[in-house]
Design a protein around this nucleic acid. Structure first.
Length: 446
RNA sequence: GGCCCUAUCGUCUAACGGUUAGGACGUCAGGUUUUCAUCCUGGAAAUCGGGGUUCGAUUCCCCGUAGGGUCACCA
């Protein structure tokens, strides 16, 4: 049997994301959450967030907050919140019933020391379940033995808690990473023993580190909040994550969240793991930045230009966006002097004004001529500036004229084109900078 | 090692027996009004190996190989 989205058409879909707060929410977990969320949204179902904090030794409030922050940032809102530790009474109740019915028993333990544990009475049947992305998967459960389901009568463990909670929440589709495959037979065994319905399992491929191994703390597993802090757009990260292990079936790559909800389907989930590529994420992010309304763009970049003249910042907005792939690039490039000359007159050495194919006299002559010609041109737009000086540049040689001009304005080997800079600076500042440059050259001569 | 999963360009992927194996990122080359950025055009780049099944396999089956996951009184 092949399970697909039709499994969602006649029942109310309830999915869940069940992280344990023993580590940060990284892109792997975020994508698992995303798929669960998309599927629930697509079918008008519910999305449960369950914090699996039964291991009090390792669970921390900080990690829980990190997980919540990450999900909030992405906008993956849950409909129902469950804290697993608070379900403990239910777990114990089920545990007692299991012991009474003989499907679990207390056992002496001499190895690890602390006395007794509670084991599942494994009948050793062969279990086959139908995974929605991989098809039938069969396990011989005899090799599992009578596995431990509780530390003692007061402390139920993971597998039992998961099955009870999924059952109580009415989870219809368990969407999780493929590292959960090997847990599935144990959970099905427990589910059958307590008469819980078996959900549909959807094991999605793992997101891999560049060396193709599972994401780990020491290998690429950075908190999602780090992406937020680096200035990625949440919608872009969602877009990118969705495309890691899923595709729409055509060649579109850029999606809004709404489009993703409409397009998402279990059938098109990939089987193999996918390496996380920052380069592609940057590209997706840039595409999303370009699609943002101007005002939203400004709101994102403004903090990086704190204290600068707002009109000037707005004037350079589009050329800034053109040069970055995430908002924090503004800061990185800013430290290299990428924006400074738009706000203050540049510092530089006279030699820089001289084009590689020209000499000092030429540069000075062109700057003097430009200073005169540019008194009366229109600075409204880059185009009008260009109109005003293009004929002259054309006649004298573009590089001969434009290089000294651009350098006089920016003080940099590489910069935005001179027409754009002029239109941003306006007549007075432009002429002042040309004047300064000409002075430098005269000193350089003498 | 046992069990389980997976296998198309460097990376993400399309092609549900018949295609010059397509797209995207990255990369390289050229162009777009001097540099940078953007943008445009073009190039290089892949079906893990071996057997089958079939008129015909990227596609179906088997065996290898490789990679990954998992083997707790963690989740």
């Amino acid at each position: 049997m092949k399970i697909n989205d039709s499994s969602a058409e006649h029942t109310k879909v309830i999915t869940r994301f069940a992280p344990s707060p023993t580590g940060v929410l990284h892109v792997g977990g975020a994508r698992t959450a995303l798929f669960s969320w998309l599927f629930a949204r697509k079918y008008g179902g519910e999305f449960v967030l369950r914090i699996e904090d039964t291991d009090t030794e390792r669970s921390t409030k900080e990690y829980e907050e990190d997980i919540l922050d990450g999900l909030t940032w992405l906008g993956l809102k849950h409909d129902i919140f469950v804290r697993q530790s608070e379900q403990m009474p239910r777990h114990k109740e089920v545990l007692r019933e299991m012991i009474e019915k003989g499907s679990a028993y207390e056992a002496e333990e001499n190895t690890a020391g602390t006395g007794k544990v509670i084991r599942f009475k494994n009948t050793g049947e062969t279990i086959t379940f139908t995974d929605a992305v991989r098809g039938d998967i069969t396990f011989d459960t005899t090799e599992l033995g009578d596995f431990v389901i509780a530390r003692d009568i007061e402390h139920p463990l993971y597998h039992l808690a998961v099955v009870v909670d999924d059952c109580d929440s009415g989870i219809t589709h368990v969407i999780r990473g493929e590292d959960g495959i090997s847990n599935t037979p144990r959970q099905i065994l427990i589910a059958r023993a307590i008469g819980a319905p078996e959900p549909i399992y959807v094991h999605i491929p793992l997101i891999l580190a560049p060396d193709k191994s599972k994401l780990s703390k020491r290998h690429g597993a950075v908190s999602l909040t780090a992406y937020r802090d680096m200035g990625y757009e949440p919608e872009a990260l969602i877009n990118f994550l969705a495309l890691l292990g899923w595709n729409p079936g055509d060649e579109r790559e850029i999606f809004s969240v709404e489009e993703l909800i409409a397009e998402f389907s279990l059938e098109r989930i990939q089987k193999g793991g996918a390496v996380f590529s920052t380069e592609k994420l940057d590209w997706v992010n840039k595409e999303h930045m370009k699609l943002m309304p101007k005002n939203d763009q400004y709101a994102r970049m403004a903090p990086y230009f704190e204290g600068r003249d707002e009109k000037r910042v707005r004037a350079i907005q589009s050329l800034v966006v053109e040069r970055i792939s995430k908002w924090s690039d503004i800061q990185t490039l800013g430290k290299e002097g990428e924006w400074e000359y738009f706000f203050t007159a540049p510092e530089y050495k006279a030699e820089g004004l001289i084009w590689k194919k020209g000499d000092t006299n030429e540069a000075l002559q062109h700057l003097d001529n430009l200073a005169k010609a540019m008194q009366s041109i229109d600075y409204a737009t880059p185009e009008t500036v260009k109109e005003g000086i293009w004929d002259y540049a054309e006649k004298e040689g573009r590089g001969n004229v434009l290089w000294p001009l651009r350098y006089a304005l920016s003080g940099r080997e590489k910069s935005t084109d001179p027409f754009t800079i002029c239109s941003i600076l306006g007549r007075d500042e432009t002429l002042a900078r040309i004047e300064t440059a000409a002075k430098k050259l005269r000193n350089h001569q003498g």
